[in-house]
Each structure stands twice: as C-alpha cells, then as structure tokens.
Amino acid sequence: MDDPIMVEVKDLHFSRGNTDIFRGVDLQIPLGKITAIMGPSGTGKTTLLKLIGGQLAPDRGQILIDGQDVHKLSRRSLFKLRRRMGMLFQSGALFSDLDVFENVAFPLRIHTELPNAMIRDIVLMKLQAVGLRGARHLMPSELSGGMARRVALARAVALDPDLVLYDEPFVGQDPISMGVLVQLIKKVNLALGLTAIVVSHDIKETLSIADYVYIIADGRVMAHGTPQTLDVNDDAHVKQFVHGEPDGPVPFHYPAPDFFDDILAPAGQFS
C-alpha cells in the first residue's frame, strides 16, 4: 500500500475478562479509500471500531489517527478529534427525542456557529443525498430500519468528516435498502473524498465497494489485500469465509463432547 495512511493500528491487544479479543492486530487504513474489516461474528469487529473511536482502551498497542495516539489524548482533545470522525451505528442510534431534520442538524448546531438558514440548507442537501428530504419531519420511531440507517448516514457526514466508521451497515436490510446503502456509501466516499472503515460480514456487498480488505479471526489479522486478491486466496480460513462455506477451519459445531457419548449417557448424567 503506497497511499498515505489515515489510521494505523499497531500491535493491538485487548481482552474482556479472561477472553482475548485481539492478540497483536496491525492495520493500516489508507487515506481517502474504503477499507473493509471483515470476519466471522464475534471476532470483535465492532470492538475494533470502538477502540479506534477511543470508546475503549487497549491493553497494549497503539491506535494512531492522523498521527495522534487516540488513547493518549485528554478527554477534551479526544472529543475534538471525534469532530473529524463520523460513525454509522448498526442500530442507527438516532436521538429519539429529535425528528429527522434535527438529528442531522445536531452536529452542525453543536460544532458550528452557522446561521439557521445555512444549517437548514446543509441538512436538506444531506437528506436529499440519502433520499429522505421528504421525511424530515418524521420522528425516529416512524422510520423503517433502512430509513433510520440512511438518516444516520446523513448525520454521520453532516460535518463533512475526514473519517467515517460504518458498523455493520447492511445487517437486517431488505435487498432494496441494502442496494441503496451500498450505493450511498460508495457515492459519499467518492463525493467527499473521505476515508471509510466498513465493518461487516456481508461479503458480496462489502467486497463490491471496498478498496482494501482485512479479515480478522482468532484475535489476529488472518489475511489482507484487495478484494480481487482475497477472492483467489488459497488459505483455508480465507476460502471458508470469502466463499461462505458452512464447515472448515471455523467449525460448524460449538465445542461439545462426542455426540454418541452424549446421546447414550445414562440417566442422571445429563448436563
């Protein structure tokens, strides 16, 4: 990768209780590109986004955004850095007491001194981009899942951030909403020239828009490369994941005693 680096993760270690989530993860997120972080459910993809956003602190290692160590910043400096970041949450995470318009206007009202007329124009432009200008007066409870995520996308890019983090943007979407979101993420990236990190396990959709892909499993980076190189990768883990094979190095069964021993166990030894 010769592109300048926007986010760099170095030797990241993180655990919850006795479970190691990451055991030495290294990533480089290039500036102005869409980088996908993929992996089976439960590998800590969302945790990685929270670590990048400074909501969690690593046990060891560093995360640098534009050269700044996220976890060495003061609370004030961290909040200042976050103004340059947008995040699209899996649930949308819209503020339930504000309507669609005010949700998108929220970051502008907080971080800028723009007059109301200009805020209105910017919000309408963002809502027009996600196709929901007509829904500006609806409350979050009146939106479908797909609409909520589109509003959340408009809010995430309201301040024209340098970096946008997408947390499972395609989960639970019908095919039309999913297609719309795929297009929007690509369009927004091209139009604003921002750096995007997409965390997802929807292979087809994610590979169709990503410039570079990291696959994470067992607390480490299992493979990385462009979508084309990963598609022809021979590693059993990568093949199983990229081609969606039900059994392979990641077993179908949760660890359990032998099936026949379990079935034939005498009464009283059930557990």
Partner: peptide, 8 residues
Amino acid sequence: TSMEMIGV
C-alpha cells in the same frame, strides 16, 4: 455512544 462519537 453516538453522542460521544459526534464529539459531544
């Protein structure tokens, strides 16, 4: 969380 990520 989203409020924190917006920088608030």
